[in-house]
């Protein structure tokens, strides 16, 4: 039986043994064949077509803590954000460990497409209105393409709406231009979800302030910063972010922003509870005007609440 040339592999063995081997092999084949046929039934459909599959759920929400995360609000989804920072916890019992005072930011974010989101917010910190545009240039891919990370850019601006006389730089001898009230921030976010539990991102950028305290202070402040999250359970994650501002840009009173916190997701809401030395919740504020010193207990307890509403469903399919 030349058909079974593979028996030759068995080498020179005596005839009866060889025959027995063939019989055993055939018997095994015989029994296996129908089972194979069933297991491989779906193989009859040929190679499965899978489109590119992008990584999802790298962060629970579009902010790490203060900073933008690599996540976007999905197309057609409105995200109402409530941010709250209590006073410094070193205020002691008389200040109820900071709970007596609070800084608030209310914001609305919206996904214009799955890659483009816009948002506005109003903070009590210097009565500031801020707005931003975030665009995802590259999406990390799990299957069907090879992008190893997500790349996004965020551009934002802020305007303080304090009365002229209340502005920190108020000077009756000088004309107060509207542009003095504005500041801008540009950030690049490069991030990767390394595993189900670990996501890390770098988000360096520059903050431009139209008006600074003196000619000594640079208008542009560069920062090198990053953040990440460690998922502890399906619905709870530990987040951290740090903004390093290289020296000789800010006055000594200002410090680097460091925040640590938890994300707790409960369906439509994400609760972010954290500790941070930053008071403001928009870029100019927390990158260039953080005064709190962790070592001295100048830490705010704070929270962000995110509630999403689906206003429009671009992918709706009828049955």
């Amino acid at each position: 039986m030349s058909t079974f040339s593979w028996t030759g592999v068995l080498g020179p063995i005596n005839g009866t043994l060889l025959m027995r081997n063939i019989l055993i092999a055939l018997l095994a084949l015989n029994m296996a064949a129908p089972v194979f046929a069933q297991d491989d039934l779906l193989d009859l459909l040929g190679e499965e077509e899978t489109g590119p599959e992008y990584t999802t759920a790298s962060f629970k929400t579009t902010r790490v803590i203060n900073s933008h995360s690599l996540e976007n609000t999905a197309h057609g989804v409105l995200d109402f954000k409530i941010g709250h920072r209590f006073g410094f916890i070193n205020g002691g019992a008389n200040e109820f460990f900071g709970l007596d005072g609070a800084t608030v930011r209310l914001g609305l974010d919206y996904g214009l497409t799955d890659r483009l989101m816009v948002g506005i917010g109003r903070s009590s910190y210097e009565k500031t209105v801020d707005g931003f545009v975030k665009y995802k240039l590259l999406k990390q891919c799990d299957l069907g393409c090879a992008t190893p990370f997500t790349l996004a850019v965020v551009a934002s601006s802020s305007i303080t709406t304090l009365m002229s006389t209340a502005l920190p730089w108020y000077d009756p001898a000088r004309e107060d231009y509207f542009s003095h009230r504005m500041a801008y921030s540009f950030q690049v976010i490069i991030g990767r979800k390394f595993s189900e539990s670990l996501t890390l991102q770098l988000h360096p950028g520059v903050v431009h302030r139209n008006l600074v305290m003196s000619t000594e202070d640079p208008n542009d402040v560069i920062h090198i910063s990053g953040g990440g999250r460690l998922k502890l359970t399906k619905r709870v994650a530990l987040n951290a972010e740090y903004f390093y501002v290289p020296p000789d840009q800010l006055r000594d009173v200002f410090r680097n922003s460091l925040s640590l916190g938890f994300d707790i997701e409960t369906g439509g809401h994400v609760f972010q509870l954290h500790l941070t030395n930053s008071t403001a919740m928009f870029e100019r504020g927390f990158i260039t005007e953080t005064t709190g010193n962790w070592a001295d207990g100048e830490i705010h307890f704070g929270f962000n609440i995110s509630r999403v509403f689906t206003l429009h469903n671009p992918r709706r399919k009828e049955s």
Binding site: A74, E265, N313, K317
Partner: peptide
């Protein structure tokens, strides 16, 4: 599986 709410779809897959 496609849901009307994208976040629901994400949670369905993730959680």
């Amino acid at each position: 599986f496609e849901f009307e709410k994208s976040l629901m779809q994400e949670h369905f897959n993730e959680n």
